[in-house]
């Protein structure tokens, strides 16, 4: 296990982001403790994806601070690769590299960035492919796998870099309903292992079972956050209630 730092895994303070004149994130504050599992939900356009993309350094932000453990993430994330290396990212559309095998997808960064040997990289990759229960597909190409399998590979690929925090950006939204479960199962077992996780998802069942806090965002701000039991039983904010009733019919 990694050495535990006293600082929270993620500390976001007064974060602001604009797309041109559109204010996507308005003064967002969010603290994620080491080992905690956060689910972020909210209507589309609420800024939830932008938020976790900022944490991974895929998006720039205009003001505020993001600290990962003790390391600040610069506004131009290209300059703070040490900080972003702590996070692993899983995308809605998998973004596997179609020209590389499953194994090569997983080993690419190990070999090119961490400069590991082919053998060492393969060993690590196979370990995580086993973890997502897909080691037998290692030598296939992404196009030969189902959507659920591809997303599990994407999770394994992110895990290979040994991140302290896993970020999920609507990991099941692009999947056929029958494949959602296999991906959520992998995420649940990851949570049991104590991984710090931030998931943008609308899978409320997963949120109820796995999250220790649910964050509801709307129009670029965090409207409310609480533990799952009170979030579902007694949402305080009208917008949260409207969102939940829409989701649960």
């Amino acid at each position: 296990m990694q050495e535990h730092s006293l600082a929270p895994a993620i500390d976001i303070a007064a974060l602001n982001k604009w797309y041109g004149t559109f204010h996507v994130l308005k003064n967002v504050d969010l603290v994620v403790g080491t080992g905690s599992r956060i689910v972020i939900c909210g209507p589309s356009g609420s800024g939830k994806s932008s938020l976790i993309r900022c944490v991974n350094g895929l998006e720039k932000y205009e003001s505020g601070t993001i600290r990962l453990a003790d390391t600040p993430l610069e506004m131009d994330a290209a300059k703070s690769s040490a900080a972003r290396r702590q996070t692993g990212m899983v995308f809605q559309s998998f973004n596997l590299f179609p020209h590389l095998t499953v194994l090569a997808n997983c080993t690419l960064s190990l070999r090119r960035v961490q400069k590991k040997s082919r053998g060492a990289a393969s060993e690590i990759a196979m370990h995580f492919l086993e973890k997502v229960k897909i080691p037998e597909q290692a030598n296939k190409y992404p196009a030969e796998l189902s959507g659920g399998q591809q997303q599990r590979v994407a999770i394994a690929r992110a895990l290979c870099l040994n991140p302290r925090i896993m970020l999920f950006d609507e990991p099941t939204s692009a999947l056929d309903p029958e494949m959602v479960k296999e991906v959520l199962d992998v995420m649940t077992s990851l949570a049991r292992d104590g991984m710090t996780m931030v998931c943008v998802t609308h899978e409320m069942h997963f949120a109820r079972e796995v999250a220790d806090r649910i964050v509801f965002m709307d129009q670029g701000s965090i409207v409310e956050q609480s533990d799952p039991a009170s979030f579902f039983a007694a949402p305080t904010h009208a917008r949260t209630r409207a969102f939940l009733s829409n989701l649960l019919h």
């Binding site: 991974n56 290396r85 990212m89 995308f91 590299f97 090119r112 870099l161």
Partner: peptide, 9 residues
């Protein structure tokens, strides 16, 4: 984006 998220230069 995936390449960046994996830390590739």
């Amino acid at each position: 984006e995936a390449a960046r998220a994996l830390g590739l230069g």
